[in-house]
């Protein structure tokens, strides 16, 4: 998997209420509609600013708080290419993999807002083309690679009739 785009920076502990507020998510299953409000409490108008394939780049504990799967889905439907963070909250991390939103654990202090990045997930490296630096990516657990290779949990289940990590 290869991605290219611009960095949009956020801080530590970005919770799922900030990613998509409860006042929207209870009303609809239309993720394109929810995507219009993604990150708006932290950065009003974020949906308008983000170009297809751009990256959310954050500090530690990204996606903490509620278990809402609308959070990774709203990011995905806003056409964000991947989320890069120093660390992720575990429920968000699982939800992202299950729904096919790439999540990348790496040292995001080396990335500034507006930096042009390219990411090669197989090779496990980020090229910060604005700074001319290479940033290593923390590899995913083997189970998650298996789920991602099948295309998410739904295709994994359809293919194997349940969990199959052998």
């Amino acid at each position: 998997m290869y991605f290219k785009g611009k960095a949009h920076k956020f801080g530590d502990d970005v919770n799922t209420d900030y990613i998509i507020s409860g006042k929207y998510k209870f009303k609809t299953l239309d993720m394109k509609e929810l995507a219009k409000h993604v990150m708006e409490d932290l950065e009003p108008g974020f949906y308008q600013k983000v170009a297809v394939g751009d990256f959310i780049v954050a500090g530690s504990n990204f996606g903490c708080g509620s278990s809402r799967e609308q959070a990774p889905l709203a990011i995905k439907y806003a056409d964000v290419g991947a989320v890069l963070a120093r660390s992720f909250a575990r429920i968000f991390y699982r939800n992202a993999i299950n729904t096919g939103l790439p999540v990348v654990e790496c040292d995001t202090a080396q990335i500034e807002a507006g930096d042009e990045l390219s990411i090669d997930l197989e090779a496990g490296v980020i090229n910060n083309r604005s700074k001319g630096t290479l940033i290593p990516v923390k590899p995913l657990p083997a189970v998650m690679i298996k789920i991602l290779k099948d295309g998410g949990l739904a295709p994994h289940f359809r293919k194997h009739g349940g969990f199959n990590f052998d």
């Binding site: 278990s67 809402r68 799967e69 429920i91 968000f92 699982r94 939800n95 299950n98 729904t99 969990f163």
Partner: peptide, 10 residues
């Protein structure tokens, strides 16, 4: 423990 909707479906 808390999970998301896809894990719940699984």
């Amino acid at each position: 423990t808390g999970v998301g909707s896809t894990d719940l479906a699984g």
